[in-house]
Design a protein around this nucleic acid. Structure first.
Lengths: 248, 248
DNA sequence: CGCCACATTGACCGAGATCAACAACTGTGG
DNA sequence: CCACAGTTGTTGATCTCGGTCAATGTGGCG
């Protein structure tokens, strides 16, 4: 079944929900106008593949709404998620033809795309864009390294707790609620996607979620709706260095 | 015992061995002269810690020679290496006060350091530096994501083979030898460091290296000197997508 | 209703961790 | 020169966490 996805009418950057966080965050009015000329919107429905690994990619862009994943797959089918793309995150690599990863929409997704060639040209002329992209890339590198610790050294229970606390914290900041005490959110990932993120099997994910529920660390309503009564407790289970947030 | 480390006399960038690969790769003569004013060299001996995680860092810089590691440690002592720094690699994050990781010299090490504040100022004024740093950061992000697949989904044997083939290929390109057929190199890491890199115990590392030796995939002379009779065979064992190098 | 995708739970197994002994090498001091 | 201690690496015995295989549950939609 193909849902009819309404292409969002091109709207002004000034009321863009990711205006202040995306790659264009530092651009002034002139620069936005320039960007406007090379941008277009694309929508994807949940489950659709945005780009296949190895395929040429003639655009780069930002996630406006929804969630996408970056995954790598070995010949025998083992797959590892290597990135979780949330609104304002950047997709694609300037200066490279193809995607190194599969990019898949896990929810309905809207992207603000820039034609690659003009974007690359603009990057050379517009320090504001290159600077912001560098900052975002450094943040992603930090996140990737944090994840390497999760993958390499944490137990299954700690891995699940780590993922939940990341989602909980992101959700809290997104909705401008305090990232402590009680947090409520919906899981944006299937058990299988969580397993691919964590280097586990989906059965282990299921078991550990059940265990955390049994132990009162989380409450579940249905399969996706999660209540965390005490975020500190959850972060404790994640084995994270107590002082949650690294540096500003 | 403290070895006497001779501080290398400040030398001209023009005969710097990493001139064409480091963060200064795209700089012209003027820019190099400017960099020269804020740079200084530091030497470390094998085993010394360059920066502790969380400590303030008043410089950024490039590895000139030797090898350093980036590691994260949990309270209970579990550690995960999150970066392997080879000559020309960049250390430190502009715009951040402290290091998020421990940086440790695993061999004798020489670094070309830039005072942070002036470097940050220069980055804003010198697109060549910001551009090159962006490129290098994107490369590191790709490497980190490649490593996430290794950590999350590969077997112990595949992990060892992956690490060996990475070192072999780097060594081959460094010495401008073809990255195929027979390759010979010295392991720059202890078994424990390899374990920390791969999310294994040092015993498992030792066992798998012995197994690869038994199976003729590698030959060992002493504990560190490795001969790879057939790099393709090794890469096969690593389970890597056959077409070794992703994109250019 | 029955189908299908997603999730849970159980029984069993094996790769890798853990605990422990030992070997090889290096530098130290008598 | 040898005895030694310290570091690094190897190998063996055993245990355990998480993977594998399989049955069962659940909720949405035709």
């Amino acid at each position: 079944m193909l849902k009819e996805i309404s292409l969002p009418s091109p709207h002004d950057c000034s009321d863009c929900p990711i205006r202040h966080r995306a790659v264009c965050a530092r651009c002034d009015a002139d620069e936005l106008e320039h960007l406007d000329k090379i941008k277009y919107y694309r929508s994807f429905e949940a489950g659709q593949t945005v780009v296949w690994s190895g395929d040429p990619m003639d655009f780069v862009g930002s996630v406006v709404s929804g969630i996408a994943t970056l995954t790598q797959t070995m010949e025998d089918g083992r797959t590892q998620m290597v990135g979780l793309l949330l609104p304002s995150d950047f997709v694609g690599r300037p200066g490279r033809d193809g995607s190194a990863y599969d990019v898949v929409a896990t929810t309905d997704l809207v992207m603000c795309c820039f034609r690659k060639k003009p974007f690359e040209k603009m990057m050379l002329e517009t320090p504001h864009i290159a600077q912001r992209l560098l900052e975002m890339t450094l943040d992603e590198l930090d996140a990737a390294r944090e994840w390497m610790l999760v993958l390499g050294r944490k137990t299954a229970r700690e891995k699940i707790a780590s993922l939940l606390s990341i989602i909980a914290r992101r959700d809290a900041t997104l909705h401008l609620r305090p990232a402590q005490g009680k947090v409520v959110f919906d899981l944006p990932l299937t058990r299988e996607a969580m397993a691919d993120y964590l280097g586990l099997t989906l059965e282990t994910v299921s078991r550990q979620i059940s265990a955390l529920k049994r132990d009162g660390v989380i409450q579940l309503e249905g399969k996706r709706h999660v209540t965390v009564p005490d975020l500190d407790r959850l972060m404790d289970e994640a084995g994270d260095d107590s002082d949650g947030g690294v540096f500003a």
